[in-house]
Amino acid sequence: MNKPSTPKIEIKDLHKSFGRNRVLQGINLTIMPGESVVIIGGSGSGKSVLLKCILGLIHPEQGSIKIDGVEITNLRGSELEEVRRKIGMLFQSAALFDSLNVWENIAFALIQGQGMARDEAQRTAIARLGDVGLRHEVAMLYPAELSGGMRKRVGLARAIASQPEIIFFDEPTTGLDPIMGSVIDNLIVKCVKELGATALSITHDMASAKRIASRIAMVFEGRIIWEGSTEEIDQTDNAYVQQFIHGRADGPIQMQIQDHFEGLPG
């Protein structure tokens, strides 16, 4: 009989508020090693806050986050940095450092975190550029000289450069055309598979979610209201999920839209 392995990420009863706005209201999520989980949900549903809590960028008020069985909500300083060394992150806007060129961006964790020599780090960075389908000439360009798709690819190369055990993807296809979105998704799947990493992505792009995920979870009003495999999501009778994946305006999810023309004559 196989011994059950420790979850890579385990979140229990996570709460976070900003003033009176209760963003996370008891999130529970377990991600096993090698899984690729995608969290879907509308704008303001708490997806990004959840990701920032796991990264230690925001401190939750209540609940537990464990990575490899280690509670991280009470870690600070070098202990937290040690945990972060296991993690790679692709930001929504790529968040490349303006003052560094492409190869320095990709090699950042290698030089600063691992103390790798600059020459060796440059060679590694150029190899990672190849992995995401960019030519080595791009290495000397600065982020301002790149297109949106190239920035995402460089961001992906930076996320995988230190060969992390866990990779987070924050809205990986937002702002890209459908073809480039598909290219990025395929690269994500390829890189995650090659690294054998555990992936957690957040998106509201259903096509992207289905391409990346082995499991999908939906967040609504700070709670996970549905979880299942990629195949199960189309068959579910959960009204929230159905409304979301089909993009219907009518349903249990009510968007807060103020009618500015209400009360005007005519």
């Binding site: 920032k52 990264l55 972060r84 968040a95 450092f97």
Partner: peptide, 11 residues
């Protein structure tokens, strides 16, 4: 988000 990126890169 470049400062967040720095933090996630353990810097």
């Amino acid at each position: 988000e470049q400062i967040d990126a720095l933090t996630t890169l353990a810097t």
